[in-house]
Write a protein that binds this DNA or RNA. Structure first.
Lengths: 230, 230
DNA sequence: CTCACCGCCTCTGTATACATTCGTGAGCCT
DNA sequence: AGGCTCACGAATGTATACAGAGGCGGTGAG
């Protein structure tokens, strides 16, 4: 694997998992030393992250980790609802029934996945659902744009933890979307997706309002963290 | 201006203007020599172009200019319609009337701009309209995504030349969108945008079907050296 | 004590040298 | 004659050296 890929992956997951807090300055030399590569791959990684919108390159201040707020979540969902509903509608027209029959059964039995304190199995199911919709929609622009948006979503979800009740409701909403796609019901696929995303956003806004938004998680060596309180 | 910015701008316009045909291999050394910079800024430019989706980096074959077909135009518009309608709807809610009153008058008198064989004034008006909608929608994700999509559109428009009748119709469609936004009519703004984009795509598909899509490829013009004094 | 100016110093931006990998072509073997 | 293998070469990927610009701190003056 290329050093630039490793640098990109490392920085990307650290940002998504809030090990690197918004506002953190990512100096090339510092990151190169920390990641054990030279400045060149770090530069390439930072350029890719900038393209993803995960970092901003401020003139004079270098590259900093982008902000993530409840406001930006609302903006994100204004775009995401428009695109996911379109993707669901296209998927309802073009889907391969076999794939979504499998997903229907999985979402129908998702309760056991949610019961597991480690929810990675459930999130994995959702990820497979997203990919199935993207594949069925058969639109590269749509898929790549949605992938970018979901990246930002993953960053927000980290702080606005879903509670079990919400996850159970989300599973039912997903089930309805899958059934609509299976039935080839374009309008219902669109509406069910809009409802699901509306509720998801409401959950995030709710978490933000109750103050669960501000706590960045850091399991990393504090020596590598930059003090933002100064 | 940085050398990497110059390299990016130069390559970007050459791709958009079809001076670099789809499938052209962009070797780092070759481009560095041609543009008069070293490989480092060229690498950064190619990385940004790859993020824009204007080039693809094939493993082993290097970086090649991305394809552009009528099929990809259809895909592009599936996304673009979803987002532009959303942007128009948001703009109708949040617009500053003064800006759109000015645009309304300009589109109402656009006939003279279209009559001009050099249509850059008209295209400039459309670009200002797009920016005004983006500003009014007040959504950074939406704006940046649309900017990316419009980049690809500009590449397609180059080969599917709009005819004067189509441009006149487009100006009327734009006028209706502006009026809807001014009136704060969310549904009409959405619908009028959908109609406009539907017609735009139809024009492109039509151009493709009548063979006007093929190859306006110019020869390799060494005069495209970038101006280093700028 | 505060503000402004100057200088240092670190940072980014660029160029270039080096290594590694992959494609291509030729030659040999089957 | 065709296919496989090896070697050469050119390309990318990486590291590092160098230059310029900008920020920050120190010092001096008001």
């Amino acid at each position: 694997m290329r050093a630039s890929d490793r640098a990109y992956s490392a920085l990307r997951s650290e940002i998504l998992e809030w090990h690197l807090a918004p506002g953190t300055i990512l100096g090339e030399v510092e990151q190169a030393a920390r990641l054990g590569v030279s400045r060149t791959p770090v530069r390439e990684a930072l350029a890719r992250l900038s393209g993803d919108g995960l970092v901003e390159s401020l003139p004079g201040r270098g590259v900093v980790v982008a902000e993530a707020s409840a406001d930006s979540a609302a903006e994100l969902f204004e775009v995401r609802i428009a695109l996911e509903t379109q993707a669901a509608a296209l998927a309802a027209q073009r889907r391969d029934p076999a794939v979504f029959e499998g997903l229907r059964d999985e979402f129908a039995g998702a309760a056991s996945l949610i019961a597991d304190p480690d929810r990675s199995a459930y999130y994995d199911l959702v990820a497979r659902f997203d990919r199935a919709v993207d594949d069925a929609a058969a639109n590269t622009y749509l898929a790549s744009t949605l992938t970018g948006l979901r990246t930002h979503l993953a960053r927000l979800r980290r702080v606005a933890q879903d509670n079990p009740q919400r996850l159970a409701a989300a599973a039912r909403e997903h089930l309805l979307i899958v059934e609509a796609i299976l039935a080839g019901d374009v309008d219902l696929a669109r509406s069910a997706t809009a409802v699901h995303l509306h509720n998801s956003l409401a959950t995030i806004i709710d978490a933000a309002d109750s103050g669960r938004f501000a706590a960045p998680v850091s399991t990393h060596d504090p020596a590598h963290q930059i003090d933002r309180t100064a």
